[in-house]
């Protein structure tokens, strides 16, 4: 269990509002022999906690090791079994010397911030960038990667084309359910899933809430504990602690009901002509209608208008 304690300590020592990378050394054999690399993610759907991208890689001719570790369809494995496999990957001699891994913890705050940018960045983009970043990272560290297998929920073709463009010398396979088809993807999926589970387990609320995962649950919107958390832990002004992905509709809808309304500046989407000056009502071409107040008020100089300054008395 020391290995898992170690993982928890690493998770605890990082700022949970930011992303961070946790990776193994590159086994020396992976620098010489051509390697296959698997990519998978955990925690894409939940409204709480980070999304984790995981990769695992080993020499192509060493795939037997993955099977002996028990890397099969990770959805079919229990939590205990997944923990066990990760412990072996981290401590068992032949596994450690042949299989390298890395995980990127993408904070819920980063996810909300990305989806609420002025130029929105979708979850798919966040995901793809993380996968690309991880592959680049281990290549930089000296791993000799020649095949990459990626599990995807979306349409594989576009994703595959993009990766092939970025890594022209690597054979790329993007497919649905890669997790159950390729043991190296199962290994990646175990790295991701165990990291995500422990990230929730050790989550510290910097907002000072005294709560833990037994009270907020798995983070899936269907989990009764998570539902309760989303319903009851609303702050009037700030909404939620940063464990929550604000950009999820579950959270958005609850804040509409329970928190103060907040309106940000509207960003004009390219191509929308909603308030186009060309669509003036026809009545505007007839005699100007003078609003009583407007007619009386002396028009302000542009200087003030540009600075949003006016003569209203705030004490009225």
């Amino acid at each position: 269990m020391d290995q898992l304690d170690n993982l928890q300590n690493i998770l605890l020592s990082n700022d949970n509002s930011k992303n961070f990378l946790n990776c193994s050394d590159v086994p020396s054999i992976c620098k010489q022999e051509p390697c296959m690399l698997g990519v998978d993610e955990a925690g894409r759907g939940p409204v709480l906690g980070p999304m984790v991208y995981g990769i695992a890689y080993c020499p192509i001719n060493q795939s037997e090791i993955l099977k002996s570790l028990g890397c099969a369809d990770s959805k079919a494995l229990t939590e205990e079994k997944r923990n066990e496999i990760l412990i072996s990957m981290l401590s068992d001699g032949s596994a450690k010397n042949n299989v390298g891994w890395a995980a990127e913890v993408i904070s819920p705050n980063y996810i909300s911030n990305s989806m609420y940018r002025r130029a929105k960045c979708s979850l798919n983009e966040v995901s793809m960038n993380s996968a690309i970043g991880l592959i680049n990272k281990v290549i930089e560290m000296g791993a000799n990667i020649s095949e990459v297998y990626v599990d995807t929920v979306g349409p594989p073709e576009k994703y595959q084309a993009k990766l092939s463009e970025i890594f022209p010398s690597i054979k790329i396979t993007v497919t649905k359910k890669a997790d159950s088809l390729y043991p190296i993807v199962s290994a990646a999926s175990i790295v991701a899933k165990v990291t995500r589970d422990h990230a929730l387990k050790v989550w510290q609320f910097r907002e000072g809430l005294e709560l833990d995962y037994k009270e907020f649950g798995s983070g899936y919107p269907g989990d009764p504990l998570t539902k309760k958390f989303i319903q009851n832990k609303v702050d009037e002004v700030f909404g939620y602690p940063l464990l929550v992905r604000f950009s999820w509709s579950t959270a958005e809808l609850m804040l509409q009901q329970k928190a103060a309304k907040c309106t940000f500046e509207e960003v004009e989407e390219p191509g929308s002509h909603k308030n186009s000056p060309r669509t003036k009502p026809i009545s505007s071409f007839f005699a100007p209608k003078l609003e009583n107040d407007e007619a009386k008020k002396r028009k302000q100089h542009k200087f003030f208008e540009e600075r949003c300054l006016n003569r209203n008395n705030p004490f009225e």
């Binding site: 907002e207 000072g208 009037e236 002004v237 602690p241 103060a260 309304k261 907040c262």
Partner: peptide, 16 residues
């Protein structure tokens, strides 16, 4: 930078 339709105290030191 947004309009907050609330008036009163806010948990700034806790949440912000």
């Amino acid at each position: 930078p947004c309009k907050i339709e609330a008036d009163g105290t806010a948990n700034v030191s806790q949440y912000f």
